[in-house]
């Protein structure tokens, strides 16, 4: 897998370290000469110094043949143009742009570029974690259209002691895994839920609240 990342700063550094550790081939495009020198010393990635929205620079970074491009500069307009050039001119199959302004997520999608907003993701994480202490973990997947939540069942949970088939879960929700005494199992209708069970729940954001409520009994 070959990934081009356009941008700088801590996010780029840790992302790149993560990707190279997984064995991806990473090429970085950054405008600042000093930062490029630093990055090339610290990371095992190719670093191209220049403007990522310049077709010549993208070509130099090997955009032809890249599997994905990630534009994470602090300027939304640059992220948009980088992704559009990469996919239209070089046929990069996956182009993902950071939308610094959360309102731009929707706009980028309308203009044909996949986008994500860290503000939105972090915001919803904090909101959902703070609202319920039983939530151990929450992971938005599919560009935030699906939530994977890990919760622990307390003694006051209305589902403790019930069989899975007796529980009336709202639409679009699934109890995917139950972890009991560190043993994970994929449950069926005949399995029961007990106090202290850790439950891995898959739900859609629109009914996330009601689903959690049905398992924990708490008001969201």
């Amino acid at each position: 897998m070959k990934v081009i990342i356009v941008g700088g700063g801590e996010t780029l550094f840790f992302l790149c370290r993560n990707f190279t550790a997984r064995g991806y081939q990473v090429v970085i495009i950054n405008r600042e000469k000093d930062e490029c020198i630093q990055l090339s010393r610290q990371l095992s990635a190719m670093v191209v110094c220049g403007d990522g929205s310049d077709a010549g620079i993208l070509k130099e970074a090997g955009a032809i043949g890249a599997d994905a491009i990630l534009a994470i500069t602090p300027n939304d307009q640059d992220n948009l143009v980088v992704c559009q050039l990469a996919s239209l001119k070089f046929g990069v199959p996956k182009a993902i742009a950071l939308a610094n302004d959360p309102d731009n997520t929707e706009i980028f999608e309308k203009l044909g570029v996949s986008a994500f907003s860290t503000t939105q993701i972090v915001g919803s994480l904090i909101e959902q974690r703070a609202s319920l202490e039983q939530i151990l973990n929450l992971l938005p997947v599919g560009e935030g259209r699906v939530n994977v939540t890990e919760i622990v069942l307390g003694a006051d949970s209305p589902v403790v002691g019930k069989l899975l088939k007796e529980i009336n879960l709202p639409e679009n929700a699934l109890i995917a895994v139950i972890i009991r005494d560190n043993n994970p199992m994929i449950p069926r209708g005949e399995n029961d839920l007990q106090e202290g069970d850790r439950v891995l729940l898959i739900s859609l954001p629109e009914n996330h609240g009601p689903v959690l409520k049905s398992l924990t009994g708490e008001q969201m």
């Binding site: 929205s53 939304d76 307009q77 640059d78 948009l80 143009v81 706009i107 309308k110 203009l111």
Partner: peptide, 16 residues
């Protein structure tokens, strides 16, 4: 004076 700003604004104006 920034190409990318012009391109983004133009697309937003046209498509949205």
């Amino acid at each position: 004076h920034e190409d990318n700003v012009n391109l983004m604004v133009a697309q937003v104006a046209k498509k949205i």
